[in-house]
Amino acid sequence: MRESAAERHDRLLSLVRERGTARVSDLAAQLGVSPVTARRDVEALAARGLLDRVHGQVSWPAGRGGGERRPAGGAAAAAPGSGPVLGLLAPSATYYFAEVIRGAREAAARAGARLVLRISDYRPEDDRARVESLLAAGAQGLLVAPGRRAPGDRDRYGDWIAGLPVPAVLLERRATPGSALDRLDRVSSDHRHGVVLAVRHLAGLGHRAPLLVARADSPTALAVRSGYAEALGALDLAEPAPVIDSVPSELDPEGFEDAVRALMSAVSSGAATAALVHNDVDAIRIVQRLAELGVRVPGDLALIAYDDEVAALADTPLTAVAPPKRQVGRLATELLVERLARAAGVPPEGAWGPDGPDGEEEPRRHVTLLPRLRVRASCGAVGPEAAGRHT
């Protein structure tokens, strides 16, 4: 596979970081590219402040640290007048994680930090290489959202994150209780609470326990499934039927049609009058297909979507559970910046010193944010947006 420019830049930065100073011609030979390509890469990286370039040579910028010279935490190595370099590993830069990244970017800008992004495309086997490239690019702290898909990915691919050489915050992900990863700082949404909000709202409208239509290909989907069973128990509701497995219509048209038909059958038989659907895109497509089959939302079926990315744009605006994605990114970044400041001996204003009040190490934090329910027309109740007001 042909190496991308970003991957080549990472290798170039790694070489300079290890050596301190290098000739452009030597870098070209090491990278296996032409001198013209190496020179163009060096100019691009120098323009971004990642390298210093003088008379055919490049060097690692003073104050950024490198290799074994980097102080613990890295924040003390930031150039005068600037904050640290923060690395962010995300499984995607679109849909759900676009807002998470936006929140992280805003918090980094307020702290004077520079945010560097890598995308794993939900390939957990590639996460480690992406993080190593962030470190090679000078990241002094890391925000890590592993690209998990299957239930076993958390234990199979996660342990190495706990051994990172710089402070790290786990982003919108949870760890196995008692594991090494569980000792890291983390900021995440409480999806179980989000499911309870949806189920309680539908029950309050007089519906029996809603059916769950959900994917099983992401941590959010798995958390929604787990939270569904807990919500039914907490609200003393009997499970109406097994969860209907949903799949992307563009990847598996037959599987998607099976899910729609199963939901239609439950509605037609009177077994269900309400449903919770993960995610927004699937919910919109399911509503469209149900309409073609003669099932109306909300007339025949009250429906709530999960994620609230595009739910409001459906023909019948969908009531949706909205995880606090932007706030997750913002708070995780603020926590990471604070950790870097403490490691550098410069704790935030109003905080205790580098350690706690008794001289003990500052405890790690697991911050959980609660989703909201945004009521629209699809559940049959009139909320602020259904009445034409913005929430």
Rank of each mutant, 00 (worst) to 15 (best):
E3V: 14
A5P: 01
S14A: 15
S14I: 12
V16F: 06
E18T: 14
R19E: 15
V24C: 01
D26K: 00
Q30I: 05
Q30D: 14
T37K: 13
T37R: 14
V42Q: 01
V42I: 03
A44Q: 08
G63L: 03
G63Y: 08
G65T: 12
R69F: 01
G73M: 04
P80N: 05
V85M: 13
V85S: 12
Y95R: 14
V100G: 00
I101C: 10
I101R: 12
I101E: 12
G103A: 06
A104W: 05
A109R: 13
R110H: 09
A111K: 10
A111F: 09
L117R: 00
R123W: 02
D126S: 10
A129F: 09
A129P: 09
L134D: 10
L135R: 00
A136D: 11
A137W: 02
A137N: 05
Q140K: 01
L142H: 05
A145K: 00
A145N: 11
P146T: 06
G147F: 08
R148H: 06
A150K: 15
A150R: 15
P151M: 02
D155H: 12
I161C: 07
A162E: 00
G163T: 14
L164G: 13
A168K: 01
V169H: 10
L170I: 02
R173E: 15
T176I: 08
P177G: 12
P177L: 04
S179R: 05
L184R: 01
D185I: 04
V187Q: 03
G194M: 06
H201D: 08
A209C: 08
P210L: 04
P219T: 01
A221R: 05
A223L: 08
G227M: 01
E230Q: 15
A231Q: 09
D236G: 09
D236Q: 13
P240R: 07
P240C: 08
A241Y: 07
I244R: 13
D245E: 15
S246P: 10
P248H: 04
S249G: 13
E250S: 13
D252V: 03
E257M: 01
V260T: 03
V260R: 05
V260L: 03
M264C: 11
S269V: 06
A271R: 14
D280N: 10
I284G: 11
L290N: 09
A291W: 03
E292F: 10
V295F: 02
V297M: 10
P298I: 03
A302S: 12
I304V: 15
A312C: 07
L313V: 03
P324C: 09
K325H: 05
Q327N: 10
G329Q: 02
R330F: 12
L331Q: 14
T333M: 09
T333R: 12
V337I: 04
R339N: 11
A343D: 15
A343Y: 06
G345F: 02
A351L: 03
P357V: 01
D358L: 06
D358Y: 02
D358V: 00
G359H: 07
E362H: 10
P371S: 02
R372A: 15
V375D: 11
A377N: 04
G380F: 09
E385M: 00
R389Y: 11
R389V: 14
H390W: 15
T391Q: 07
